[in-house]
Design a protein around this nucleic acid. Structure first.
Lengths: 255, 255
DNA sequence: CGTTAAGTTGACACGACTCAAAGGCGGTGG
DNA sequence: CCACCGCCTTTGAGTCGTGTCAACTTAACG
């Protein structure tokens, strides 16, 4: 398979890169490590370690509460960094667990130092990646705060479709998404039983077709409208996109 | 009033700084601008502009949905940056609105370039600030996903107490927090009516005393226990803190 | 005083949770 | 090859948290 490196595929969205930069990114992938499914890559409370990213497979970030409940706060698809950011903080405040067999790449500190010193476009792309992560967290927060479970789940599928398509893993609006319903529930902040009912409702309404750990979206525009999905926050395109009308709050001045 | 600059107060938590660095931070505050309450500092959809931070007053980040509902996704207290991060992305994906009269400081690009080139400790502290913002978003996401409204609100007050205390604005577990109940509701993802009932319940239970736009916490440990508040995510102390037991998921291996 | 924004209250509807049990499905071992 | 087992999904019934709508009170302000 001559699929291009997903890291490159993703970072090229952030900024155009020279051939030398692309070579450099390829050469980062020396230290590969295969990891089975349902395995913790990073454990809440661990000290920071070297920077890693997902080359293939799928994983999620999650936090656990004292009562045993769990909250999934983000997904890692091929090309996403595990911990580009946390090294500067003393301690990692969340866990990362694979949901499929995955390949992760460990970037030696020396490579990073080298890039920092001599490849400003790559540094800029790294920055971009962390900022997109943060923008995604903000979007998830509004999704969770102001949408009911069915629209939330639709929104999640819209996001997965776009992110996977960006790295070539979603053809014809079909993609592999090996989540059990308990994981869907922990992502949306609902119970497993309710997640099941929502999945069924979306299926009945013909919005998504979930089968065999794969998702198919028969009518993407319709699903996006239902989910009120505005892809701008993923910053996957540098083209200007209109984000629709923005409410002007009452009793509020403009600076 | 000889209160030290809140930016300095905050960034010193991240890393010890030389006298020269401290001077440099003070000298950033040349371009001050006074802004009235309920004024938009940044509007969703705007192109990025120069970096700013809050010197005094209070503001919040928020996103609006097409149906007019609003989600508040973060608070800015003195010493917090508005937009340290978003300049690299093409477009700002959320708004910032003041909730009190505030003073914001505009940092000229030339000052930033200068710092980037010659003050690595300050750059590191800037990084730290964005990472704490991101960690806070993750915590908010789990708070919203897995806690009921009363514990959520308690959690919000615990966070405000600690963050304000870090910049000297919360003495004796009392602090100024000029939020109307609609804003509380939009922060927690609940309705205004329900926010009102939760406030009353917390008052009755003697957990918080909200009066005249100020919050007093009679028994901070008790409130923290009720809210399941673990301050680690704010990274306000470099001391190791124990975060309690972490659930080991079933059917999950350790990498 | 009249006006407006914020806080409060009650009644009712509905989304979501819990508990419990049953069905599907792929393993593994006898 | 079948029986068994564990994991996941599905279903039902009852409860509870939260939303909605509407009215009323209180405080702030000119």
């Amino acid at each position: 398979m001559d699929m291009p490196n997903p890291l490159i595929r993703r970072l090229r969205i952030a900024a155009p890169m020279s051939a030398a930069d692309l070579d450099r990114l390829s050469s980062l992938c020396r230290n590969r490590q295969d990891v089975p499914a349902r395995t913790r890559l990073i454990r809440q409370g661990d000290p920071p370690r070297s920077v890693r990213f997902v080359l293939s497979g799928m994983a999620y970030r999650h936090k656990s509460l004292p009562d045993g409940s769990r909250s999934i706060i983000g997904y890692l698809f091929p090309g996403d960094f595990c911990d580009l950011h946390v090294a500067i903080l003393g301690k990692i405040d969340h866990s990362i667990t694979t949901c499929t067999p995955s390949t992760v790449v460990d970037i030696p500190q020396s490579d990073l130092d080298d890039i920092m010193a001599t490849a400003p476009d790559i540094v800029r792309a790294f920055w971009w990646a962390t900022l997109v992560d943060e923008a995604t967290l903000r979007e998830w927060l509004t999704r969770m705060g102001r949408r009911r479970a069915d629209r939330q789940m639709a929104h999640l599928f819209c996001e997965a479709q776009l992110r996977l398509a960006a790295v070539g893993l979603a053809e014809d609006n079909r993609f592999f998404l090996p989540l059990i319903q308990e994981e869907l529930a922990d992502t949306l902040g609902i119970s497993t039983v309710h997640a099941n009912r929502v999945v069924q409702k979306l299926r009945e309404d013909g919005l998504v077709d979930i089968r065999d750990q794969a998702v198919a979206i028969p009518d993407l525009p319709r699903l996006r409208e239902f989910a009120e999905f505005d892809p701008a926050y993923l910053h996957l395109s540098r083209l200007p996109q209109d984000t629709g009308p923005i409410r002007q709050g009452p009793a509020e001045r403009v600076c």
